[in-house]
Amino acid sequence: MSVEAAVDIGPLIVDLSVGRGPLFADFPFESQYVTSIIRVSLYVSGIAVFLSTLVSLPIALVVGFTDFIGKRLVTAVINTGMGFPSVVVGLVVLFTVSNQGPLGHLNLVFTKEAMIISQVILATPPITGISLAAVSSVDESVRDAAYAMGGTRLDVALVVVKEARYGLATAVLAGFGRAISEVGSVLIVGGNIAGANGISKTRTLTTAIRQEARQGRYDTAMVLGAVLLVLVLVVNALVMRLGDGGTVR
């Protein structure tokens, strides 16, 4: 019985792996193919979110702490940015880094760096917007107390960041979720390149899924989709865990 089952499964696996060479257990891809895709996804989105956070946090703190004319307009602009269509961002970045574009001499087109640029543009508005909401919701008395105890502006900012850490973690996660799950811009500026040796250069999980779907291989696309979901879940769990670690002293 079990022998029959093995025979049945065999051809199925081979069929899924057309042109991909040796198999890793019953996974329909060569392991290093998938590993390299995951690495590219994490590298590009991770760096993009890191850079976005560096930009977003100061903006959120400054806008959140100060009152100025046009503050509502600034907030509105940030919130509008959350809705940037990724394909449009991809197109704009492509025209910028293309060899005919203003940054053409840097040879960035179809590289990870170009993908990072477009993802920074995509991830910054949600991180800024949600951080701003988190910072604004910190009770004013906390800030007043920090000032009263003779804190500098930096001390006060740190206290607020600490108070708002859950909201800020959510902001970073939202930015990461936006970055790692978008396909429009990374496909246009990255080109979905994998080498002949099966190692991804600019292929991410999302562009790989799109490629499998283009070829009508929906089953393998689903496998990659599951990998992406698990990945996002793990990153969320890790970041939330870090947040918990902060409370237990």
Binding site: V18, G19, F110, I193, G195, A196, Q215
Partner: peptide, 25 residues
């Protein structure tokens, strides 16, 4: 690309010249 021909063709070329071929389909 989708038929797998390109990988078959590019791997020997890469070895022969010590270069990388970035194929965009």
């Amino acid at each position: 690309y989708d038929t797998g021909l390109l990988d078959e063709l590019n791997a020997p070329f890469q070895d022969m010249y010590g270069v990388t071929v970035d194929a965009i389909s």
